[in-house]
Computed example of a mutant assay.
Amino acid sequence: MKKTYMFLMTVLILILAACGTSEGEQDTTQGDETTEDSLTPPEVEVQFEGPLPVNEETTIKAVVTQGDKKVEDAEYVEFEIWNDAKGEDSSEKVKASHTSDGVYEASYTFKEEGTYQVIAHTQVGDLHTMPQKEVTVGEASADNSHDEANGKESSHDHGKGEFMVHLMTDNAFKAGTESTLTTHISRMESPFEDAIVRFEISSDQMDKHSFLDAEESEPGEYKAAHTFPSAGEYTINVHYEKPDEEIHGHKEETIKVTE
C-alpha cells in the first residue's frame, strides 16, 4: 500500500512539473513577441501639400508606422528645416502634433525661395529615426512637382546633409541635478555607429569649456551624464569623429537649465 501511495505521488509531481513548464514556455514566447514588436524600427513618410509657396503657411505631415500599425503615441515628432543656401546652422525646429491614424502635422512658413532640407526627428519608445526630405520652395517648386509627376527627379548635391546631428534639447535640465545629454547621429539616414563623440559645454557662467566623452547606448545614439552648476543658457557643441576615415564634424545647440 505504501509503495502504491509513493508511486501515485511521484506521478502527480511529474504532471504538475510538466504543466508548469508548459505555461512558462508559453509566457516566455508571448514576452518575446512583445519585445520583437517593440524593436521594430518606426518608418516615417514626410508629406507636403505642394507646390510650396513663399511667405504662406504650409502644412508638413509625417505618417508614422511601426510594422503594420499606425503609431499614435510617439514620444515626439519634430521637423528640423533649413535653407541649403544658409546651411544647417540656420535650421529651425517645429514640433508636430498628432491628428489621427499616425499622422503628425505642423505649420511652417518658408520665407525665401530655394532648396530646403526637412528632417523628421521621430521618437517611438526607445527607437529614434530621422528621415530627410529635400524640397524646393517658390516658382521652381511647380516645375519640380511636374518633373516628379512624370517620373523625373531633380539632381541636387546632398553632401551638405551627409551627417545629421540631433541633440535632445527638450529634456528637463536642472541645476545641481545630474542630467543626461543625448544626441542622435546619422550618416545618409543610417545610424552613425562606433564613432568618438564628445560634448563640449560652454557658458558665460563658466570660466572654461568642459568636455564629456559620450557612450553609444543604441546604434547612432550617444549619451553622457553631467551636472550643470547653475541655471542659465549653455552651449552644447557635439563633436563626432572617426579618425581612421578622416571624419570630424560638430553641431552646436543651446539649452536652458532651470533652478
Rank of each mutant, 00 (worst) to 15 (best):
E153H: 11
Y240R: 03
E253P: 00
E113A: 15
S155R: 03
T169S: 09
A149F: 15
D101N: 11
Y234W: 01
D170S: 14
S217Q: 02
S91T: 11
A195W: 02
I201A: 10
Q66M: 07
V124I: 11
T21I: 10
E252P: 15
M164C: 04
H98M: 15
Q123S: 06
E153I: 06
I119W: 08
G232S: 10
N55Q: 13
F199R: 03
A142T: 14
Y108W: 05
E56M: 04
V54M: 00
E72P: 01
E75V: 05
V197K: 03
D27G: 00
E25W: 07
E253V: 14
T65M: 00
T29M: 06
K256I: 13
F192T: 08
A225W: 06
E45I: 15
D37V: 14
K86T: 15
M9N: 12
Q30S: 10
K160N: 09
E45K: 13
H128M: 03
D126H: 10
T34H: 02
G20H: 09
E245P: 03
E78C: 04
A74G: 04
Y108E: 05
S100V: 14
I15W: 10
E218Y: 09
E218C: 01
F192P: 00
K95Q: 09
I15H: 04
I185G: 01
G24L: 13
D37P: 02
T177A: 05
P191S: 03
T99Y: 01
V197N: 06
M9C: 09
